[in-house]
Design a protein around this nucleic acid. Structure first.
Length: 329
DNA sequence: CGAACATCCCTGGAGTGAAG
DNA sequence: CTTCACTCCAGGGATGTTCG
């Protein structure tokens, strides 16, 4: 019946064949019935970032559950282990009032993702802004003491465990900051070329020495230049920078190459570009910024990387007064 | 004021372990 | 074995800051 489950799920989760048997079993038990119910109502299973509407729905579901059970805070509900004295009671209430079902009500996504999202939203240790230098030192010290026990460290730092784990991976080894040297940039470009070659399965690396690699014998689709690159591998090859720095630098290199001399965002041409962006946005008629389909912005500015369009659109967005208080539509 | 750089948050995949 | 609760990782995207 694992195969039967896969077959039924495939309709809702097209990539289900790539998911491990364990996860499929879980989804079959927990989500299949929900997905079918949504389908009856003509609602498709959703992926990608949660929209404002969905976040509101989660808030409502949590509030409803709290008032139904009398549990007095979302933190107690979602981080039960922080309240050892109430643990037994809360677990019983969760089971009795069908926590899983209620939490995911009205949201056409796999249960696990809704649960995970809710925990982030209601974790008082989350969304705490930038780390101070003292915090970074503390984090290093705690990691030296407790290793990868992120749960423990997160309690000690009053930051979410995801946040501390991520921050640590960023600061664990000393990296350079500030402008990239010519040498670093060259290393980065070599690294990217290497991984793309490897991916394409070209055996040329054996026959060509590094120095005689020329760019004209490698033609790849534009998307392959910036998407799904193995950044941790590239980080290792560059050696002096963190992978996110590498990703960003690569994007600026790519943008400069692809827009060379076009002055896309200056002068009257710049104004026209902005107008085009706004027009396209208007035509797309999306309710939520998280529902934007970046592919549809292709060729609005010119033949530029996705990251360029994303950056420009962001700048436009924040140039609207009080943009944070306004709805997208 | 835009480009470059820094650093935050999010997604979706996989995995674990306890309890029944 | 199933269900519930929790965790980690790799990569993508958003937002803040600095500088020429």
């Amino acid at each position: 019946d694992l195969d039967a489950a896969k077959q039924q799920l495939e309709e809702f989760i097209p990539h289900v064949r790539n998911i491990s048997d364990n996860s499929v079993r879980k989804m079959a038990g927990r989500d299949l019935a929900r997905f079918k119910e949504f389908k009856k109502q003509g609602i498709a299973v959703k992926f990608g970032r949660f929209s404002k509407k969905e976040n509101e729905q989660i808030r409502k579901n949590v509030e409803d559950f709290l008032s139904a059970t009398g549990i007095d805070s979302a933190e107690k509900l979602l981080f039960t282990y922080r309240y050892p004295e109430d643990k037994g009671t809360i677990h019983r209430l969760k089971a009795k009032h069908l926590f899983c079902e209620k939490l995911s009500e009205g949201i056409p996504r796999p249960w696990r993702l809704i649960y995970y999202r809710a925990r982030k939203m209601f974790d008082p240790n989350n969304y705490k802004g930038r780390y101070t230098d003292e915090e970074k030192e503390k984090l290093k010290k705690y990691h030296a003491l407790h290793g990868n026990d992120w749960k423990k460290i997160s309690e000690m730092m009053s930051r979410s465990n995801l946040s501390v784990a991520m921050k640590y991976s960023e600061i664990k080894s000393a990296v350079n900051y500030g402008p990239w040297s010519k040498e670093e940039t060259r290393k980065l470009m070599n690294a990217v070329e290497e991984v793309i070659r490897k991916r394409l399965g070209t055996e040329e690396e054996d026959s060509h020495s590094l120095s005689e690699k020329s760019s004209e014998d490698l033609l790849v689709d534009r998307e392959k230049l910036s998407e799904k690159l193995p950044w941790t591998e590239i980080e290792a090859k560059v050696g002096t920078r963190y992978w996110r720095q590498c990703k960003q630098k690569w994007n600026t290199v790519l943008i400069n190459r692809l827009t060379k001399g076009q002055q896309l965002f200056r002068g009257t041409k710049g104004l026209q570009t902005k107008i085009n962006l706004i027009k396209r946005l208007y035509e797309m008629d999306v309710e939520d910024p998280n529902d934007l389909n970046w592919e549809e912005f292709n060729n609005i500015i010119g033949d530029v990387p996705k990251a360029y369009v994303q950056g420009k659109l962001y700048k436009l967005k924040v140039s609207v007064p009080f943009w944070q208080k306004k709805t997208f539509s």
